[in-house]
Amino acid sequence: MLTYVCFLVIISVSGGNAAIHSLMYTYLATSGIEDVPEFMTVGFLDGVPLVYYDSNIYRVIPRQKWMNMAVESDYWDKETQISIRFQELYKININTAKERFNQTEGVHTYQVMYGCEWDDETNDTNGFHQEGFDGVDLLSLDLKEMRFISLVPEGIPTQNKWNNDSAWLENLRFYFSDLCIGWLKKYLQYGWSSLKKTVSPQVFLLQKDPSSPVTCQATGFYPIGVTITWLKNGQNHHKDVVLGELLPNEDGTFQKSSTLTVAPYELKKNNYSCVVEHQSKTFTEHLTEDEIRAIHENYLPNSTIVGVVAAVLLLVIICCTAYMVYQKKIESESCSDTTRRPKETNPSVLFLGETMLLAF
């Protein structure tokens, strides 16, 4: 439905100056993909990675230093055990989905996203929960009606199963309207200095050899809003231009590139420039033979190397092609007593407790 929008939706509300803030978590189970973890989770605050887990490291780790101040000391152990249980559940879920779609061989993915939003100007809130398989929307939560809607026939059995669990649905309602928003605000307090930062991009022109395409690379910038355009003799130039994906760097900044294919004789006859516009600054790099060669010798700085989180997010982008998932399943300390306010703890534990391990 939406090519690579799943990632852009995550970060479209990022930046400390935005009125709408979000707390979101993604889950990705894979099957048949070599050298890729079978299960991964990433948590985000306003598009910035907070926590990460995969089935290779078997440990939930922070992606922001201030997270250790925002949670209790036993948070990481609890989240690790919970993530391991969910890893086991989603291994079952992806196999169930494969059977329902009659696609037991090949490469497959099961995706989930969930979270909440808060508008700090109007105080409006929202919650969301969607699940998908191989880029196909499976289930979506209608928060107003508090029921799941199946978007394909293969999801009907799960729709009926989940909609019949009234206690679980009430916990979801409470999570989205109260707990998630509370923790979103708490995380914003701790992470505000990081979220409101503005970092200018570094811009480089890269080329393997004189006959290769030229890449204009912008890296190390925050927030995400950046525009890369090419000029030919001072006029906008769109021919033979390929815009790259927006990707995160390991340090919480972002990178993006645009590649121009141009013949060497065209470079000599015309004046080409790459213009990178960011809220912090506008950069203009002129394509000259000497400049490109000099930059090619130095190539990329270490800051552009995509870290673990970037690799995971890139995989999420690929797996979410034609698909957007929004979601949240939740748990209170006592799911059987929905009238009692759950004990305050971190939102992931409330969501990921054993009583919330509902199979697809």
Rank of each mutant, 00 (worst) to 15 (best):
L8M: 11
S12H: 11
S14C: 08
H21T: 09
T26F: 15
E38I: 06
D54K: 04
S55D: 05
I61M: 15
I61H: 08
K65V: 13
W66H: 03
W66Y: 10
S73Y: 05
W76R: 01
K78Q: 09
K78A: 02
E88T: 11
N95F: 03
T96P: 00
A97E: 02
E99K: 14
R100E: 00
Y114M: 09
E117M: 10
D119Y: 04
N123E: 14
D134W: 04
D134L: 06
D134A: 11
V136R: 00
D137A: 04
E145W: 00
M146Q: 04
F148N: 01
V152E: 01
Q159Y: 00
N160S: 10
K161A: 12
W162H: 00
W168M: 04
E170L: 12
L172P: 00
G182K: 07
Y190Q: 04
G191P: 02
K196H: 10
V203C: 07
V203A: 02
Q207R: 13
D209K: 14
P213L: 00
T215R: 06
F221D: 02
G225F: 12
N233A: 07
N236I: 04
H237F: 14
D240W: 09
L247W: 06
N249R: 06
K256E: 04
L260W: 07
P264L: 07
Y265D: 14
K268E: 14
K268A: 15
N270P: 00
E277W: 01
S280L: 03
S280Y: 02
T282G: 11
T284R: 11
D290Y: 07
I292M: 15
E297P: 00
N298Y: 14
Y299P: 00
T304K: 05
T304H: 08
C319G: 03
V325T: 13
S334C: 12
K343M: 08
E344A: 13
P347A: 15
P347V: 15
E354Y: 06
F360W: 14
